[in-house]
Design a protein around this nucleic acid. Structure first.
Lengths: 167, 167
DNA sequence: CGGGTATCATTGAATGCTCAACTATCGCGG
DNA sequence: CCGCGATAGTTGAGCATTCAATGATACCCG
């Protein structure tokens, strides 16, 4: 029995550091975004995904995939964003089950206003603390985690370089 | 104006991979723990912290620090854990503002039952995907993020090696 | 000692997320 | 053309977290 492969000491320390670091980063970013833009980080990510899509709109399902979100979470989120006037739901003519979420002008403005502060936060909490070598290592690690999980590329990608808002 | 230091292409890709990887890891672990142990990951962490403390109990404030949690979050969490019978609140004689949270026998059982599956999940989603070199790199990165944020050591630490449950 | 301030912890309202159930539509096979 | 499983998305209940306000006690300093 007891075939449990407990974490080695190094793994243990790594895991706890990971827990602490991710908690720190996301708690801070969430708080900053909530204060400065009135939205949680998850909603910001939705707006970013829309801003980068052709025509600034995406099918709900694609938007869910682009934001690594569940349908349910996204549906609730878009409902909120729509109330705020930052996103609009549009029925899809070719498939009447489907809807598009489209970024509104107001949504783009809010995003543009929030982006600099957010990027600053990402730098302050993450990148400013890393050497260039560590930057590459972190990327490799994260991509290793994502790889083959779905059998697809690390992230939907598809940047249009049009409206810089970063993640 | 526009002094915004946007993310470089490498930083951009790293950040998005980081978002995807952390979301994947925590979504999975949360779901697994919820299914197998009936508690979210945050509560598991609380039980682990208690299990490692001398006498399996900690002051609320120290427990909050040990779990990188806000007082409020912890207070609500302990209330829930107490309802479940896994933790007990005890008034502190030396400081009557203070309370201790103590792990109950039932709490320790639940923790012991949940730990193997959870460790397995951590391995599956994170460590099994990393080379030994990457393990060290990830640790360095996470500790760099934590360092000097508070001016203290990376994590309260203080393992007693007594009841292995890992993070 | 007495008053002010800092610390320890809790509470309730508001918000976001999860899960499971549900509606509506599509498209395939017979 | 019908029936059925798959797909797209929504909904509501329940739970977790946040924020701001509050209560209670401890500590310090004049």
């Amino acid at each position: 029995m007891d075939q449990v492969r407990w974490l080695s000491d190094e793994e243990q320390k790594t895991w706890r550091a990971f827990l602490g670091a991710t908690r720190l980063i996301f708690d801070e970013l969430d708080r900053e975004l909530q204060r400065e833009a009135g939205m949680p980080h998850g909603y910001y990510v939705v707006l970013v995904a829309l801003s980068e899509a052709p025509g600034r709109r995406l099918r709900m399902t694609d938007l869910a995939a682009a934001t690594a979100s569940s349908c349910s979470r996204l549906s609730h989120a878009v409902a909120r964003l729509e109330e705020a006037g930052w996103v609009e739901r549009q029925p899809c003519p070719s498939d009447r089950r489907s809807h598009h979420a489209a970024l509104t002008a107001a949504g783009l403005e809010v995003l543009a206003a929030a982006a600099p502060g957010h990027v600053e936060g990402v730098r302050r909490h993450l990148f400013d603390r890393l050497t260039p070598a560590q930057l590459g290592q972190l990327r490799d690690v994260c991509e290793a985690v994502l790889r083959e999980e779905t059998g697809e590329k690390p992230f939907p990608a598809g940047r249009g370089a049009a409206h810089r808002v970063d993640g």
